[in-house]
Design a protein around this nucleic acid. Structure first.
Lengths: 239, 239
DNA sequence: ATGTTTGTTATGTATAGACATAATGAACAG
DNA sequence: CTGTTCATTATGTCTATACATAACAAACAT
């Protein structure tokens, strides 16, 4: 009477993962060969292969021809970071979300804009600053440049009903992104956040590309005491 | 004359990924059925299946029986965060790494320790504070508690030649972790970092479990101007 | 109109077999 | 002793096939 609900390759995967996570198979342990595991679970080698392929993709094992698969040393440095959409984040906390576009200006890219977008030559850009509020209290300050060469339709877009970030996700289909997280002190440029000067803040910079073209660069500033980023690394959840 | 070096299922995957990332197939687009793709690439359905399974695991497509696979809306919030090992991080930047254990004490868990380890009942813990240096200049302050119930051998461990973090990775085979990143102001407890008071700092807290037992909680404090975390999200790299 | 049954379709899982490829180690030749 | 060759082995990829399952849609009954 086996559990028919869970597919076999997942059960095999879970069994091996359990051995590794419980310490039964410490790093360096040589995992039984695919054919041996297939015999153990009374199934085809391909089924075991699928399980091992997933474990390798998650970084729990390392596979080598001939010598077989071995348990890898843990690499704690890789974690899935969840950077939520600001609106969703505020509403998840049970607050009313609002935002206000403070400045919206089309200009030829300055030197600083080129650095932010990692552009060599100046192109027209849309520069935006924006204040996000939770229950009418300042929550996050946004400073953004959008390349009008990559997203020309941004020039005539209205951000009355949709924040620039949400608009871009709808407008630019899929993209690669790079995040940079650092700590900064509140200064005059962040007066909209109504903080005591030199309050520590979390600065999240996000650079986005689409088909290798720079799309946008945002700088989000959160008051440090009011916000934290949470990242989880749990091998069993991945895949 | 096909490229024989790259397996077919990867080429199929790359081709579809390219369509999605370039905007050719915007979110919501219905992807050709597995059998159609198999006909296109003149291969078995299983090969296409493998490619689509990987794309689904990376979150680029969503698969539904009967209706077929569709391109998902991008989810920028998920990114792989690289939290490097401090020694590797310092040495990668070309500095000489050193560390100094400032305090090392075994005690019954205090109320605060229980909160940090998410324990209900107090157990013996090892409390450590540690200063990490790059070229003999303070680089990072570490404040750690280790549950001696989960890792009894920590009681007699020497951290002369290996930092507590590195020792734990060797000692505790595999684990799940949770990271919390926030901004704090430097205060008296961080005097070892030799910072001007109220300098913004990046605080990284990491909680680690092994087989559902709390193992350790670290608080790492980096001077904010000297450090940043970088996370990347590029679908083509994953898997 | 509303609910149920039934068929169709596309994906999900699994098998068995085939050949490719990389790594290891043993036998061999210099 | 050293370098080469070659057989062995375990994984990597791919095929062809089979049946399961979820979802939708059309036909049917109430």
């Amino acid at each position: 009477m086996e559990n028919r609900a869970i597919p076999l390759h997942r059960r095999i995967r879970a069994a091996i993962e359990d051995k590794i996570l419980s310490g039964g198979w410490p790093p360096g342990t040589r995992i039984p060969a695919e054919t041996e595991l297939a015999a153990t679970y009374n199934c085809a080698r391909m089924t075991v292969n699928k399980a091992l392929t997933e474990l390798a993709a998650d970084g729990l094992i390392e596979r080598r021809r001939k010598s077989g698969s071995v348990v890898k040393r843990p690499v704690l440095q890789s974690a899935v970071l969840e950077i939520h959409d600001i609106k969703a984040e505020v509403e998840a906390a049970g607050f009313a979300y609002r935002y206000r576009v403070e400045r919206q200006k089309v200009r030829e890219a300055t030197r600083a804009d080129c650095d932010r977008l990692q552009l060599d030559a100046p192109v027209p850009v849309l520069a935006l600053t924006c204040l996000h509020l939770a229950d009418n209290r300042p929550f996050c300050w946004e400073d953004r440049v959008i390349s009008l060469s990559a997203v020309p339709q941004a020039q005539d877009a209205s951000f009355d009903h949709q924040s620039p970030g949400a608009w871009l996700i709808d407008e630019v289909p899929w993209s690669a992104a790079e995040h940079r997280i650092s700590a900064v002190a509140a200064d005059a440029s962040l007066s909209a956040l109504e903080l005591t000067p030199s309050t520590p803040c979390l600065a999240i910079e996000r650079r986005t590309w689409n088909a290798d073209k720079p799309v946008t660069h945002v700088r989000l500033i959160y008051p440090g005491d009011a916000h934290a980023l949470v990242a989880r690394f749990a091998p069993s959840k991945a895949g």
